[in-house]
């Protein structure tokens, strides 16, 4: 999900309001640079240049790619205001409304960060797990089904040969590995707040979790450009299979976790017990 690094840069805006964070909250990399260069000035310049320049460029790159993804969702009529968001500007030839819609969602995510940084981290963390799983599913299909020479011609530019098999196997293994280990808490002993940054968010994000990987797959498969190697991968029954597998995986994770921990993370976001009821209904 290209939104992920983008979200990283956005909390800069709300943090600007909390000046004490700047003074007391040193970054680890800043501390390393102070120690290495023996000059707080040099370290500050490094952080400043990296922080502003790199964030700016990454912001543009992520907006660029993410807007195309949003536009593709809207083109398949999968979003609210799809007819608007799926429109491409006549003169500039870019999806202007998709860009604006993305910016708006990211703007709202900034408020989540103000409310609970754990909830915010959960949003971006779930993206990472989903990304690995979304990569693993097509890789698995490639191994099972082979590639059609109609789309991957023998004369193609990039030919990985046996290394392609190796890469696909590693992708699947890594997807399974991250699915398990990224849900582990980073520190022990565990409390409701430190459980895992991903797990408390699961119910809140359930809808997206269930939809995103399958939509991604469909998006890749319905891509008009015949050069994409996923084009021939997925038949309708496999789409159903993918969707069912994904749903099962996430429902299993959700059920295997302690419901109380889930509700604590949920409350951090919503702050009242109605959320508990909603959570229970969702689960």
């Amino acid at each position: 999900m290209s939104h992920t690094p983008y979200c990283h840069t956005v909390p800069i805006l709300p943090i600007h309001g909390q000046r004490s964070n700047y003074r007391s909250g040193r970054l680890p990399i800043y501390e390393i640079w102070v120690q290495a260069t023996k000059s707080p000035v040099a370290a500050t310049i490094f952080v400043g240049v990296l922080g502003f320049f790199v964030n700016y460029v990454v912001l543009v790159a992520c907006q660029h790619t993410a807007s195309r993804l949003t536009w593709a969702f809207a083109r398949d009529n999968a979003l609210v205001f799809s007819h608007k968001i799926g429109h491409i500007h006549d003169k500039h030839e870019v999806p202007v409304w998709a860009l604006l819609a993305n910016s708006f969602v990211v703007f709202l995510l900034g408020f989540v960060y103000l409310g609970s940084s754990t909830a915010f981290n959960a949003f971006i963390g779930v993206g990472l797990i989903l990304q690995q799983v979304a990569f693993a599913i097509p890789a698995m299909l490639l191994l099972v089904q082979r590639r059609s020479t109609q789309y991957l011609k023998p004369s193609r530019f990039v030919k990985l040969g046996p290394f392609g098999w190796f890469a696909n196997v590693v992708t699947i293994a890594y997807g399974l590995l991250t699915l398990v280990f990224y849900c582990f808490p980073a520190y022990l002993p565990v409390s409701g707040g430190t459980m895992s940054e991903f797990i408390p968010n699961l119910p809140a994000d359930l809808n997206q979790i269930l939809l995103t990987p399958t939509f991604r797959l469909q998006r890749l498969c319905s891509c008009g450009n015949g050069s994409l190697w996923l084009h021939q991968l997925v038949s309708p029954c496999q789409k159903t299979l993918c969707r069912t597998t994904t749903v099962c995986i996430f429902v299993m994770i959700g059920l295997s976790r302690n419901l109380r921990l889930l509700s604590e993370g949920w409350q951090a976001l919503c702050g009242h017990y109605q959320a508990d009821v909603a959570l229970f209904v969702i689960c």
Binding site: T4, P5, A61, A66
Partner: peptide, 12 residues
């Protein structure tokens, strides 16, 4: 995390 970006803009 952003590596899939190149795929999303493949059409262009």
């Amino acid at each position: 995390a952003g590596i899939d970006g190149a795929i999303h803009v493949a059409e262009e």
